[in-house]
Write a protein that binds this DNA or RNA. Structure first.
Lengths: 202, 202
DNA sequence: TCGGTAACTTCCTAACTAGTTGGTTGACAC
DNA sequence: GTGTCAACCAACTAGTTAGGAAGTTACCGA
């Protein structure tokens, strides 16, 4: 069994004494995020989410419409959060990779949710994510055109390579397995930074 | 809805007229592989697997013990297959990356199954995968010690970076989304090869 | 030919699940 | 006060699910 994930971002677990629709929505969203991160869409239980949020199922259907739509709401919130908290700095892709790697380690549920979205939800990339990533790619392409960034790789391939490298030590990495001892935090950051630098230097 | 995946490796769909335990086992395993690849463990339906294999549920419990054990059997078979079909060649990591990338594209279910194993099954890497990957890392470390390979990165980090880069265009990549047109097959292979070369050159 | 056994199947069920219904409660305006 | 409406909830439903029980069929050795 996989233990429930903790997100610990907002205090969305405390039920207020007064009636508060927004607070209830937030509590449901928080509980759903933990549940979906831990079990995915098919494995998530609507009852558990309602209980964890100290609410009930009817509220979920009232506020979000259904299980899958609830997941979509969670996913959109996560994408929004990542975009806000980690602005891409084109002039420092190695540093961006390092910060992203650190972020993934601090918030393991993010990568899990993204992975589940890919596996369980539709065949093509979600509009909300495409919208978030497109300007980043454009920014990189512009920097390449201006000669501020290596043109060794296409902008999109470069950005995705950076993201993959950042997730090297994340729990959902698509490779086979880690053998044993992880490198230290410092060593991990150094490796990630260096790899991206290598890609840019050529 | 996500369509069922096809594996098309063995003709494990045809039910023989005579009774044949091995053939039945193989049919169940094949059907389970398609089902699990498409829906994961929680989303998979034992009834569907049994029907697809032209058998019945009781046989699954007889041969494999249960749903999760059936998944483990599928996973072990996949790991075994990958190890056999893609021997690591330490002297040509860029080429290995390219071949791995091509393999992932040819068999999308492999990466899906591996990803689901990570998400839904236990917290630590599966023994069967660790056993498969350990000698590969040792081989790389040896080549580094002999001076045949760059010591720029620890052997395990290097191998995992290679694997991540190989999965750049795979459906389960843990990043956000692809924006537009994919590069051609040739271009993709060139990019993957080049990236690994960059990591080794430094 | 017959008995034993492995392979197979049908039928069942207890527990569970997403989604709904119909009604209750509290806050707030007037 | 009292009317109104949004917020909230317990109980229910209809369908599904993993797993198992109990019996049937084919094969094979003696």
């Amino acid at each position: 069994m996989i233990p429930a994930m903790s997100t610990d971002q907002l205090v969305d677990k405390v039920k207020p004494v007064v009636r508060d629709a927004d607070a209830t929505r937030a509590r449901l969203l928080g509980a759903a995020r933990r549940e979906f991160a831990a079990f995915g869409i098919a494995g998530a239980r609507v009852d558990r989410i309602a209980a964890e949020a100290a609410s009930n199922k009817a509220q979920i259907y009232h506020y979000f419409g259904g299980k899958e739509q609830l997941f979509d709401a969670v996913f959109a919130a996560v994408v929004d959060e990542v975009v806000r908290e980690l602005p891409l700095e084109v002039h420092d892709l190695p540093g961006y990779a390092a910060r992203l790697a650190e972020y993934y380690e601090r918030r393991p549920d993010v990568l899990r949710l993204v992975t589940w979205q890919r596996l369980e939800r539709s065949t093509e990339p979600p509009a909300v994510a495409v919208k978030a990533i497109k300007p980043k790619i454009a920014e990189i392409a512009q920097a390449q055109a201006d000669g501020r960034l290596s043109e060794r790789y296409p902008a999109d391939a470069l950005l995705h390579a950076v993201m993959h490298i950042a997730s090297l030590w994340a729990a959902t990495s698509p490779d086979m397995a880690w053998t044993r001892k992880l490198p230290s935090v410092v060593a991990r950051r150094r490796i990630v930074t260096q790899m991206v630098r290598d890609l840019l230097a050529g």
